[in-house]
Amino acid sequence: MDTYKLILNGKTLKGETTTEAVDAATAEKVFKHYANEHGVHGHWTYDPETKTFTSTE
């Protein structure tokens, strides 16, 4: 398992979190669920070199 990072740049919520996942697709599902639960619906990007997802509203 690898550690993946999420950076949230929402209108009402900003911050970072991490998750352990078997691959990027699994981490993306976890992070999108997390963002949706916190009302963040933004544009998603992923940097495979740093294993970092960013959601920007």
Results as ranks from 00 to 15, higher is better:
residue 45 T to R: 07
residue 30 V to P: 00
residue 5 K to E: 03
residue 22 V to L: 12
residue 10 G to K: 03
residue 39 G to H: 06
residue 40 V to D: 04
residue 35 A to Y: 03
residue 5 K to I: 11
residue 5 K to G: 03
residue 14 K to G: 06
residue 53 F to T: 00
residue 52 T to A: 04
residue 7 I to N: 03
residue 31 F to N: 00
residue 16 E to V: 13
residue 49 E to K: 12
residue 41 H to F: 15
residue 30 V to K: 08
residue 2 D to W: 12
residue 37 E to P: 02
residue 27 A to W: 02
residue 1 M to T: 11
residue 34 Y to A: 02
residue 25 A to V: 09
residue 36 N to M: 14
residue 32 K to M: 10
residue 39 G to V: 03
residue 45 T to Y: 07
residue 43 H to F: 14
residue 44 W to I: 06
residue 19 T to Q: 05
residue 34 Y to H: 04
residue 16 E to W: 14
residue 27 A to N: 00
residue 27 A to K: 01
residue 13 L to V: 14
residue 18 T to M: 08
residue 49 E to S: 11
residue 13 L to Q: 08
residue 38 H to A: 12
residue 33 H to I: 15
residue 24 A to H: 07
residue 48 P to L: 06
residue 42 G to Q: 03
residue 31 F to Q: 00
residue 45 T to S: 12
residue 19 T to H: 07
residue 15 G to M: 15
residue 29 K to H: 10
residue 24 A to S: 08
residue 40 V to G: 03
residue 17 T to A: 11
residue 12 T to D: 11
residue 7 I to L: 06
residue 37 E to Q: 13
residue 36 N to V: 12
residue 27 A to T: 01
residue 6 L to G: 02
residue 54 T to L: 07
residue 1 M to A: 08
residue 48 P to F: 07
residue 7 I to E: 04
residue 49 E to I: 11
residue 49 E to N: 11
residue 43 H to N: 13
residue 26 T to D: 10
residue 35 A to K: 01
residue 48 P to A: 12
residue 46 Y to A: 00
residue 51 K to F: 08
residue 56 T to P: 03
residue 55 S to D: 05
residue 42 G to C: 04
residue 8 L to W: 10
residue 40 V to C: 04
residue 19 T to N: 03
residue 35 A to I: 06
residue 38 H to V: 14
residue 52 T to W: 01
residue 17 T to W: 15
residue 12 T to M: 11
residue 14 K to A: 08
residue 52 T to K: 01
residue 45 T to W: 06
residue 1 M to R: 10
residue 22 V to G: 09
residue 3 T to A: 05
residue 2 D to S: 14
residue 50 T to N: 08
residue 42 G to V: 05
residue 52 T to Y: 02
residue 52 T to G: 00
residue 40 V to F: 15
residue 56 T to E: 10
residue 20 E to V: 14
residue 27 A to H: 01
residue 16 E to Q: 10
residue 24 A to Y: 13
residue 20 E to L: 15
residue 22 V to I: 13
residue 23 D to V: 01
residue 56 T to I: 09
residue 14 K to C: 14
residue 28 E to C: 15
residue 43 H to A: 13
residue 34 Y to I: 07
residue 3 T to W: 09
residue 38 H to K: 13
residue 26 T to I: 07
residue 49 E to W: 11
residue 33 H to V: 13
residue 9 N to R: 11
residue 46 Y to W: 03
residue 8 L to E: 02
residue 31 F to T: 00
residue 31 F to C: 01
residue 45 T to M: 08
residue 40 V to Q: 04
residue 10 G to D: 03
residue 20 E to H: 10
residue 25 A to L: 10
residue 43 H to V: 15
residue 41 H to P: 04
residue 55 S to H: 09
residue 57 E to M: 05
residue 9 N to H: 10
residue 17 T to Y: 15
residue 51 K to C: 04
residue 32 K to V: 07
residue 22 V to P: 15
residue 42 G to A: 05
residue 13 L to F: 15
residue 52 T to H: 01
residue 21 A to H: 01
residue 43 H to G: 07
residue 27 A to G: 01
residue 19 T to A: 07
residue 3 T to F: 07
residue 8 L to K: 00
residue 28 E to K: 07
residue 11 K to P: 12
residue 17 T to I: 15
residue 53 F to N: 00
residue 43 H to Q: 13
residue 49 E to Y: 11
residue 53 F to P: 00
residue 2 D to G: 09
residue 13 L to M: 14
residue 47 D to Y: 06
residue 14 K to S: 11
residue 11 K to I: 15
residue 5 K to D: 03
residue 27 A to Y: 00
residue 57 E to Y: 06
residue 52 T to R: 02
residue 3 T to I: 12
residue 3 T to H: 07
residue 10 G to Q: 04
residue 13 L to C: 15
residue 8 L to C: 09
residue 35 A to T: 06
residue 55 S to R: 04
residue 22 V to R: 13
residue 40 V to K: 03
residue 15 G to Q: 14
residue 9 N to S: 09
residue 8 L to H: 03
residue 27 A to L: 01
residue 33 H to T: 13
residue 41 H to I: 12
residue 25 A to S: 09
residue 39 G to Q: 07
residue 36 N to Q: 14
residue 55 S to Y: 10
residue 51 K to N: 05
residue 53 F to Y: 05
residue 1 M to D: 05
residue 28 E to H: 10
residue 31 F to L: 07
residue 31 F to I: 00
residue 37 E to I: 13
residue 55 S to I: 15
residue 52 T to N: 01
residue 1 M to L: 13
residue 57 E to W: 07
residue 9 N to T: 08
residue 48 P to N: 07
residue 42 G to R: 03
residue 47 D to R: 03
residue 41 H to T: 11
residue 55 S to K: 03
residue 2 D to I: 13
residue 38 H to L: 15
residue 3 T to E: 08
residue 21 A to I: 01
residue 45 T to K: 07
residue 41 H to N: 13
residue 36 N to L: 14
residue 52 T to Q: 03
residue 53 F to D: 00
residue 8 L to Q: 01
residue 6 L to Y: 03
residue 17 T to V: 15
residue 4 Y to E: 02
residue 56 T to W: 10
residue 50 T to C: 04
residue 42 G to H: 04
residue 30 V to F: 15
residue 32 K to Q: 10
residue 18 T to L: 08
residue 11 K to V: 14
residue 24 A to V: 11
residue 53 F to I: 00
residue 4 Y to K: 02
residue 12 T to L: 11
residue 2 D to P: 06
residue 15 G to L: 15
residue 26 T to L: 05
residue 26 T to A: 14
residue 57 E to R: 03
residue 30 V to I: 15
residue 26 T to H: 13
residue 54 T to W: 10
residue 42 G to N: 03
residue 35 A to E: 06
residue 50 T to A: 06
residue 51 K to H: 07
residue 4 Y to H: 03
residue 2 D to T: 14
residue 2 D to N: 14
residue 26 T to R: 05
residue 23 D to E: 03
residue 51 K to E: 01
residue 36 N to A: 15
residue 19 T to E: 03
residue 25 A to F: 10
residue 5 K to P: 02
residue 9 N to E: 09
residue 53 F to Q: 00
residue 1 M to N: 08
residue 23 D to T: 05
residue 42 G to W: 14
residue 51 K to S: 03
residue 7 I to V: 10
residue 36 N to W: 14
residue 55 S to L: 15
residue 18 T to S: 10
residue 25 A to E: 12
residue 21 A to C: 07
residue 31 F to R: 00
residue 52 T to P: 00
residue 7 I to P: 01
residue 24 A to R: 10
residue 57 E to L: 05
residue 1 M to H: 09
residue 6 L to V: 03
residue 15 G to W: 15
residue 46 Y to G: 00
residue 35 A to S: 04
residue 4 Y to M: 02
residue 54 T to S: 07
residue 52 T to S: 04
residue 12 T to Q: 10
residue 11 K to A: 12
residue 35 A to M: 09
residue 12 T to I: 10
residue 32 K to H: 09
residue 57 E to A: 05
residue 23 D to W: 02
residue 57 E to C: 05
residue 44 W to R: 00
residue 7 I to F: 06
residue 18 T to E: 08
residue 25 A to I: 11
residue 28 E to D: 04
residue 42 G to I: 07
residue 42 G to S: 05
residue 33 H to M: 14
residue 6 L to T: 02
residue 14 K to D: 05
residue 6 L to I: 03
residue 43 H to W: 13
residue 43 H to T: 15
residue 10 G to F: 15
residue 49 E to T: 12
residue 2 D to E: 14
residue 32 K to F: 08
residue 54 T to P: 00
residue 57 E to S: 05
residue 43 H to R: 12
residue 27 A to Q: 00
residue 55 S to N: 13
residue 28 E to L: 15
residue 15 G to E: 12
residue 34 Y to M: 05
residue 47 D to L: 04
residue 7 I to M: 05
residue 36 N to Y: 14
residue 57 E to F: 06
residue 22 V to W: 12
residue 28 E to S: 06
residue 4 Y to C: 04
residue 30 V to R: 09
residue 3 T to N: 05
residue 39 G to Y: 05
residue 29 K to R: 13
residue 33 H to Y: 10
residue 50 T to Y: 05
residue 44 W to L: 08
residue 1 M to Q: 08
residue 43 H to P: 06
residue 44 W to P: 00
residue 18 T to Y: 14
residue 6 L to F: 08
residue 31 F to G: 00
residue 15 G to T: 15
residue 36 N to G: 08
residue 38 H to N: 10
residue 13 L to H: 14
residue 39 G to L: 05
residue 11 K to R: 13
residue 5 K to V: 09
residue 24 A to D: 04
residue 13 L to S: 09
residue 54 T to M: 10
residue 49 E to L: 13
residue 23 D to N: 09
residue 7 I to A: 03
residue 44 W to D: 00
residue 44 W to M: 09
residue 39 G to A: 05
residue 46 Y to H: 01
residue 47 D to M: 05
residue 26 T to K: 05
residue 11 K to S: 10
residue 22 V to A: 13
residue 34 Y to Q: 02
residue 22 V to D: 07
residue 30 V to S: 06
residue 12 T to F: 14
residue 25 A to R: 10
residue 32 K to C: 08
residue 11 K to H: 13
residue 50 T to Q: 06
residue 46 Y to E: 00
residue 53 F to V: 00
residue 55 S to A: 15
residue 16 E to C: 15
residue 11 K to C: 14
residue 5 K to S: 05
residue 48 P to M: 07
residue 3 T to Y: 06
residue 15 G to C: 15
residue 6 L to A: 03
residue 22 V to M: 12
residue 41 H to M: 12
residue 4 Y to P: 02
residue 56 T to C: 08
residue 43 H to K: 12
